[in-house]
Amino acid sequence: GGTTSGLGELPSGWEQRFTPEGRAYFVDHNTRTTTWVDPRRQQ
């Protein structure tokens, strides 16, 4: 941990993952979708 950059926890059902290249993306298990956009930035 320690790399949350002050955004806090992800919404319920979300998970942060990384591509083999090390790029972060976000998985929404509620809708079984993925996005490059941090859901915390859409609030």
Rank of each mutant, 00 (worst) to 15 (best):
T3H: 10
S12V: 08
Q43C: 03
G22Q: 07
T4N: 15
V27P: 00
Q42G: 13
W14D: 03
T35K: 02
N30T: 09
R40H: 04
S5W: 07
Q16P: 06
V37T: 09
G2Y: 10
T4C: 12
T34N: 04
G1R: 09
T34P: 01
D28S: 03
Q43L: 15
T33A: 07
T34W: 02
R40K: 04
Q42T: 13
P20N: 15
R17S: 11
R40L: 05
Q42L: 13
R17M: 13
F26Q: 01
Y25S: 01
H29V: 05
T31K: 08
W14K: 01
E15H: 05
P20L: 11
F18N: 15
T35N: 01
G6M: 13
T19N: 07
Q16N: 10
R40G: 06
R40I: 04
V37A: 08
V37I: 15
N30L: 06
T35Y: 02
T34G: 01
D38L: 02
T19K: 01
T3I: 06
R40E: 04
R41P: 14
G8M: 11
R23S: 15
R23I: 14
P39S: 00
Q42F: 11
T31R: 07
Q16T: 09
D28W: 00
Q42Y: 12
G1N: 15
P39C: 00
G1Q: 14
Q16R: 10
T33C: 13
R40C: 07
F26G: 01
L10M: 11
E9Y: 07
N30G: 09
T19R: 01
Y25K: 02
R32H: 09
H29N: 13
Q42W: 13
Q42A: 14
Q43W: 12
S12T: 06
R17V: 13
T4W: 08
F18R: 10
H29R: 06
R17D: 06
E21L: 05
E9W: 03
P20R: 11
T31W: 02
S5P: 11
A24N: 11
T34Y: 00
F26R: 00
P11R: 00
T33E: 06
S5H: 12
